[in-house]
Amino acid sequence: MEDLIVKLKEEIIEVLNLEDVTPADIDENAALFGDGLGLDSIDALELIVLMEKNYGIKLKDPAEGKDIFKSVKVLADYIAAHRTK
């Protein structure tokens, strides 16, 4: 799980172009949206694309994202349980 969390942090930094942010800067339990990393709705769309492209997970209901994208740790748990690649 630790490897997946680190990999996920790297992918998030790359796909969201988080300049000057390193994986170590991201608290895996901190909120991704709002106060934590401060991501927005466009970032949510990018994360949905990332999940499908890299892990074969297709979110049927976008509203599910609200729970899945709570933090990097929650996202990693969801990916570990549902990934198809």
Binding site: V15, E46, V49
Partner: peptide, 13 residues
């Protein structure tokens, strides 16, 4: 490259 699927929204917008 992606076969018209999985397109990043930012570049489109």
């Amino acid at each position: 490259r992606e076969g018209e699927e999985l397109l990043n929204p930012t570049y489109f917008m």
